[in-house]
Design a protein around this nucleic acid. Structure first.
Length: 594
DNA sequence: GCCGTTTTCGGCCCGACTGTTTTCAGTCG
């Protein structure tokens, strides 16, 4: 029987919630299913594993009833109660829910009125009906909604709305352009990013920008002069447009004296805000983007800054990266929030590829050692680690590989000393290697080749789909293959937005790494951001060090390290949790400890 | 259906915008 993954379970629960909505079930029961769905989608472990550990009801939003239903799901592959609920709703409703603007109620009305009874073609059938103008006459619909449905279907087809999210650098670039445009308006007193971009989530859906102004209308009109393809929404408090590149940008405006609450509200996350509002309600306060309302008196207090807003609630200021409802409110209440690591704390980058050709298994870098050293000096680093890929094992003998590694070390040492003489800068060099952990768990570097490196990053670059037990054994074998293996490189191997990470027993990996003092890499490359923030959180809680590297294949990519810092911050890391915040002597002792 | 600093019963986040309506339902974030 195929096991359902978390996302599929989440969607199943959301479909039940939608069915309940159509059936006019108790709205709190509906909310409960939606919340459980969200919670499961964002869980760090597979529900299947949690079920095996008999800890389902420890998952937030999963109580006794849902735990029982999920138990039935994992035991038998189906849930009778879910099936009986779904049976009461035409099945053609469910595919329509993927269309933007289409919720359960509208979908149900359309399915009934248009007699859509085939699930597989529901969206095609709906599109046909819209084109034939049979939707507008239906009660509750009209010309505009018929048109909106066609637009929604077309967006759904492009996968634009719920599909392709942006990388952080792309989102940053668009945000910078919009902010530069907004700055030209003298009425824009303050401008900030909002939403997932401000929280530095790994992928970004759309760009949200906040503006503090006393001239809302003027600022919104100014924003609408930014080149765009289409206006989606426009009101007194903001506007949304689609740019020519298909990306959506929202601008929200607020008076400077109430700007703090607005910034807080639209930064989210949704889950943080819900938790915060529940917490506030317990203290007789109701929160909105306008401020904090006293429930008894109805008086709304305004705030210029977020700091004042959180202070009013008796909380420490919560950094945007922490606002994911992972315990930050409780921590803020007992003044126990971590002092987060920052880019200024980083003393070196240990995963840089050069153009030195050692006939590697994967891509060479494009810059020379000297260019990388220059860049490290420009970034103010104390040290750099050159971690080229190991020589390819498939077409070279062990002896050849050992010889290549020996000559590489000699070459780098000679170049390094002459560089140091010439530029009079103090950047220390570690000669490292990024070695593949092969399918059978051996490391792609002969024992003797380890003599010619200071340390090794072990990474998975092949056979990503091995099953969990096999993969865990493979990784443990690779990490344990030599004492000089000090870093587990881009541990999940995920590639955003498409390739899923490998399956591992993380508890086992964490325990092993802790024991061997192996650091987990936070790979800052924007399509990796790996370890992902949620696992960083778990790793740090388990007492492991992380190390933030760029995996740069060119000196320009060495600039991307701050994205790794963002991941660390989202994982609640302080300076102490990150190995490469150590000053050179301490770091050297840690890296060369074997 | 979940959950606990006021609760194992009785609460449960908040508002904007749109389109179709004459006062509101649905959807979204």
């Amino acid at each position: 029987m195929a096991t359902l993954m978390n996302l599929e379970i989440a969607n199943l629960l959301r479909n039940i919630a939608a069915a309940y909505q159509i059936l006019d079930e108790n709205r709190f029961r509906i909310m409960a299913y939606e919340r459980a769905g969200d919670s499961i989608e964002h869980a760090t472990r597979e529900m299947k594993d949690i079920w095996e550990d008999e800890k389902l009801s420890e998952v937030p939003g999963v109580g006794k009833t849902l735990a029982q239903h999920l138990d039935e799901l994992f035991r038998t592959g189906r849930v009778k109660h879910f099936e009986s609920v779904m049976k009461r709703v035409p099945e053609a409703v469910f595919p329509l829910l993927g269309v933007p603007g289409m919720g359960p109620k509208k979908a149900y009305k359309l399915v009934k009125a248009l007699h859509l009874n085939r699930k597989d073609s529901a969206i095609d059938d709906l599109e046909k009906a819209a084109r034939e103008h049979t939707i507008a006459p239906i009660e509750g619909f009209g010309e505009k909604s018929e048109h909106a449905i066609l637009e929604g279907i077309s967006a759904y087809r492009r996968g634009q709305i719920k599909g392709q999210r942006m990388s952080l650098p792309e989102a940053d670039r668009i945000a910078r352009e919009v902010i530069a445009h907004m700055k030209k308006n003298p009425d824009a007193e303050k401008i900030d990013t909002l939403g997932s971009l401000r929280r530095q989530v790994a992928t970004i859906g759309d760009i949200d920008i906040a503006v503090a102004t006393t001239n809302a209308q003027g600022v919104i009109e100014h924003f609408l002069r930014f080149p765009h393809k289409k206006i989606i929404e426009q009101g007194p408090s903001g506007a949304s447009v689609i740019l020519t590149n298909g990306r959506q940008v929202d601008v929200r405006v607020q008076e400077p004296r109430a700007y703090g609450a607005m910034l807080q509200y639209f930064t989210g996350s949704k889950h943080h805000n819900i938790a915060l509002r529940e917490y506030a309600l317990g203290r007789g306060k109701s929160l909105s983007e306008h401020g904090v309302k006293d429930v008894k008196t109805g008086v709304v207090e305004q705030f210029r800054t977020e700091q004042e807003f959180y202070e009013e609630l008796g909380l420490q200021y919560i950094a945007p990266e922490l606002r994911e409802d992972r315990g930050e409110i409780e921590a803020g209440l007992r003044k126990g929030l971590p002092k987060l690591v920052g880019f200024a704390d980083i003393k070196g980058d240990l995963h840089v590829h050069t153009s030195y050709d050692l006939h590697p298994s994967h891509d060479l870098g494009v810059n020379t050692l000297e260019e990388c050293l220059d860049k490290a000096a420009a970034l103010g680093y104390e040290y750099i680690g050159i971690s080229d890929h190991n020589p390819s094992v498939s077409n070279q003998s062990k002896e050849k590989i050992i010889d290549i590694m020996k000559r590489r070390k000699e070459y780098y040492e000679q170049k390094y000393y002459s560089w140091k003489e010439r530029v009079k800068k103090r950047v220390h060099l570690f000669i490292m290697c990024e070695a593949d952990v092969l399918t059978d768990g051996t490391i792609a570097l002969p024992e003797k080749a380890f003599d010619f490196v200071d340390a090794v990053i072990a990474s998975i670059h092949s056979a990503f789909r091995q099953e969990r037990k096999t993969m865990t054994k493979r990784v443990l074998s690779g990490l344990g293959s030599h004492p000089k293996v000090c870093v587990f490189g881009h541990p999940t191997g995920r590639l955003l937005p498409t390739r899923e990470g490998i399956e591992l027993d993380w508890e086992e990996i964490f325990a092993f790494c802790k024991n061997r003092k192996i650091a987990l890499e936070i790979n800052a490359y924007p399509s990796r951001l790996d370890l992902p923030d949620t696992l960083v959180y778990d790793a740090v809680k388990a007492g492991l060090p992380c190390i933030i590297n760029t995996d740069a294949h060119s000196v320009r990519q060495m600039d991307l390290l701050p994205y790794g810092v963002s991941v660390a911050r989202r994982g609640w890391c302080t300076k102490r949790d990150i190995a490469n915040t150590m000053e050179y002597n301490k770091f050297k002792d840690w890296l060369l400890r074997h």
